[in-house]
Structures are given as C-alpha cells and as structure tokens.
Nucleic acid binder design. Structure first.
Lengths: 139, 139
DNA sequence: CTCAGTGCAAAGAGTTTGCATAAAC
DNA sequence: GTTTATGCAAACTCTTTGCACTGAG
C-alpha cells in the first residue's frame, strides 16, 4: 500500500508552519485525484462534496498558498481563467486540443536544453517557462 | 522611401470589407510605432493623443477585429492583461525579464522543428503555440 | 489561548455588450 | 441610404480583500 499523496502534502505544509484545515484537506484530496486540469470554480464544486461549507474565496486563497509552497502549479492557458495541477510529476509542457479542450502533457529534454542555450546567449537565466502547443488531430 | 505599414494594413482591412475609421487608423499608427508590447489601456492612452474621442471599448473591439484579420497578435503573458504586437515580423517567441518586465523576442528553428515532431508523434498538427521564457539576468 | 484561516459580501481588474448616435462606403 | 462602427454606461468574469468570527496548533 503506497503512501497517500495528500498525507505527504499536508506534512509538507505543517513543516512550514502552514495550518492544515478541513478545507485545505478537501482541496488537496480533490487536486490529487483530478486527472484533468480544473479551474478554481471546478475545484470548488468538487471539494464542496467533501466539505460543503467551503467557499470560493478560500479556494483561491488556498491555491495561492499551495502554489507558494510549491505543491500546485498554476497554468495560464490562452482563454479563460487559471487552471491547476499538483506539482508531483517532473516538469512538463502542455498540448491543448483545440477541438476538445483536452490537455496532454509532454516533456522534451532537447527543447529544454535549447531554451537554456538561447537564454544564456542573451545573458539570461531561466527562472521558469511555458510552452503550449495548441493543436488539432491530424487526419 | 518605403511604404507606410499603416497604409498596407488599412488596405488589407478594406479588402475584407472592414471599415477604416479615424479610430482604427489611430490605433494602427500607434501599434506600428510601438517598440514595446503595450496592453489595451496603454494603446488607448497613446492613441488618444492622435484622436482624443477614442474610447477604451473601441480599442478592445478594434483589437479583436485586427486579431481576427491577422494584423495583430495578442500575447497572454502570466500576469495581468493581454498585450499586443503587430504581426509584421515572422513568428517568434518571447523572453520576459522578471525584474524589468522587458520583453525580448527570439526565434529558434530547431525548437519549432522539435515541437512539430512531438505533436506529430501524438497525431497532432500544431495550429499555433506559445513559448515564453521568464528569466533573470545572469551575474 | 493565540493567531492563522474562514465565510461572506463587497470591491477590483480586465474585458464585453446593449443601445442610441455617428460616419464609412 | 445602408450598414457598420462608435461612445457611453452597464454588465460580466475571474480574482482579491476587509472584517468579524472560527478553529488549528
């Protein structure tokens, strides 16, 4: 039986002096179980099933805490609001299917390397980056 | 004496049956003269100098027409609102200086190629993409 | 017990829209 | 003359915030 990722996260939070409330536990559970990339409203909807007192304001506040603590990542895709994912997998970029909205993850070490070279040439160090491919199924 | 890019654009618009108004001419002029990547409010401020009746609503409406016509590109960077640039240069990506906010453009044919390969492997065709490097000056 | 976290409602920022008027073609 | 574009103000979406109260440590 493998360790519950939510357990690990709550411990991480407690270690930094961040309080773990009912609401935060509910959100963490929903986030770790999400196979997609939900926005704040959707996370609110899902977490309400676990804790029906949870407010949207708290969802936003908690998400920004979790982002600061490095537990979640905020995606800012082209249209609409921010979407979130747990930061448990190694870094990856995203392919957005323009027809279905489905998001696929990918990772290219070669591209990462090229990016670093380009930045270095201009005297820069990359702090973070975003690469999104907006695609349509080939036919 | 080289042709005024604004002239070319207005012709492009007229050809598609889009009316070229005082307001749109003012905006096009401001856009072509901009060396940076202004947001809607900034474009409004600058274009007002040429045509002081121009409203912010018209700026937004015009920008979306220009985007649809392929005359401008909308950048959706991480923080804040959309920023715009004229679509006269070949495609390029952006480096954002986290300390100064300055945006530098770059282009890597190798990265473009790798992106296409990755998308193709998953049965996708890239419609468009975004690559942004958020950087700090090395020291 | 204390202070960080919460719900609520109100406020902000950025953007869009309905409607009567203006002006491009 | 038609029909599209404009200005204004109001509406809308997403997100943040002030405040009194609650609950985690």
């Amino acid at each position: 039986m493998k360790p519950d990722p939510t357990q690990i996260m709550t411990q991480t939070l407690r270690d930094t002096g961040v309080r773990v409330t009912r609401q935060r536990e509910a959100l963490l559970r929903v986030l770790t179980e999400a196979q997609d990339h939900p926005d704040a409203a959707e996370l609110h909807r899902r977490a309400r099933v676990i804790d029906d007192s949870l407010s949207l304001a708290t969802v936003y506040r908690t998400l920004s805490v979790l982002e600061r603590e490095g537990v979640v990542l905020r995606l800012a895709l082209e249209n609409g609001g921010a979407r979130y994912e747990v930061a448990d997998a190694p870094h990856h970029d995203h392919i957005v299917d323009l027809d279905t909205g489905r998001i696929t993850e990918f990772r290219s070490e070669k591209i990462e390397q090229l990016q670093r070279e380009i930045a270095a040439e201009m005297g820069y160090e990359i702090v973070h980056h975003r690469l999104e491919l907006y695609c349509r199924k080939k036919r």
